[in-house]
Design a protein around this nucleic acid. Sequence first.
DNA 1: AAAAATAGCAGATTTAAGTCATTTTTTAAT
DNA 2: ATTAAAAAATGACTTAAATCTGCTATTTTT
Lengths: 233, 233
Amino acid sequence: MKKIKETPSCLTCSIAKTCIFKTLPTEELEKIEYEKTVHFYKKNSIIYREGNRINGFYCVNSGVVKLYKTGLEGREQIIRFGKPGSIIGYRSILSGELACTTAKTIEDTVACFISGAKLIEMVTKHASFAMELMKLTCKELGESNKYILDIAQKTVRERLAEILILLIENFGIDDDNVLRILLTREELANMVGTATESVIRLLSEFKADNVIELKGRKIKIMHLEQLQKISNL
Amino acid sequence: MKKIKETPSCLTCSIAKTCIFKTLPTEELEKIEYEKTVHFYKKNSIIYREGNRINGFYCVNSGVVKLYKTGLEGREQIIRFGKPGSIIGYRSILSGELACTTAKTIEDTVACFISGAKLIEMVTKHASFAMELMKLTCKELGESNKYILDIAQKTVRERLAEILILLIENFGIDDDNVLRILLTREELANMVGTATESVIRLLSEFKADNVIELKGRKIKIMHLEQLQKISNL
DNA sequence: AAAAATAGCAGATTTAAGTCATTTTTTAAT
DNA sequence: ATTAAAAAATGACTTAAATCTGCTATTTTT
């Protein structure tokens, strides 16, 4: 099942309700369409690195990107994911800082690059866009703050259950209740903020308790309410 | 040393360079001046609670406010502080969510309340204000993400040292190198995300190593570079 | 200034979770 | 399909940090 590399159009792409550009008038979208550059990334490619000065942001068209910070011993801490419709790298543009995360694809990904100047122009020209962008940022901030509480006060077991729930909310499950994203145990550990071995052990426990089923990287959700109970949400 | 309760003026107050209103034209400031309501809070007063729907935000004029989330067993996790010039409660206005933290004064505090409608009006009317607000939000987001990494990967010892450094950067030290904010050990623990006893023990260790000196809640910084070394920053 | 309440401190014990080492399984590449 | 490489699983051991307890010193309130 090979996919053809097709340049996405802003006009069709922006139909998605989740997209930040939804309030922009068509003529503005056409300008973006003209100005943007489309990039094709293979799995495990780095889009930008923590500490880079990036002069624009990316809108993910297809694929999945993990955004992570790197700790002292090189251990990754995954902050969030970018999926189709997400924008990434915008924070550093707006704050005037360097990128605070590394963006790495975990699937083949297509992302459109739009310059920081254009972003600022859109914020300035279209108040509704500015509002949408703020809403997005403030939601992210709320999520980050929530996670600070969790990581500070919850057990690894509770956090792992919560992360699984967040992944379900974010990526969904298929007809067979299998999570629609494949992550390594290490990546899960890097989200939870724990050791890979701990994730492996806990997933096995969840499986033993019939909360989930495991087949390679596929995680099948057997009892969501049980997961919620464990997560102490 | 009693202070007279004096209604602050936006025009003098906004002189501070850190203030979000710095780019607004005088006539807009005058309107805010007219519309705002000034509130006087005693120490340990709650301005708003996590989960509240607040229909405006507060600009701290004097005093200090701690913003915290409450965990399962009622343990507080301090997310940040509001000090003169800071705005608090704006996140939930912009994201359209409920307040994600509780705001409680830790000193007698004066704060000005401005309606959410006014905030949105300012964002819509003044692009430069929108940019400033985004910059602020994005900086906060960067800080929160940084703290997720720290709390996930650093030891309590490292985090405590880092928190002390952050407090120095935020509140400064006086001529005698004493930190210009007084926090209980419990509040420090609620920032670090650890048990009060651990903070007590570690502060004692820092003192034994001549990094700091303690007198009640006063923390005197003896060797900042040593603290930085411990924090692994 | 005295009393009551709260905060700070230290030792002993427990425990959750990390680390290390080894084997088995899965995934990716030729 | 076969092999190589990476990831997953499991067991043994270690350790950082939490909890519990009792005691002392500071704040705060009256």
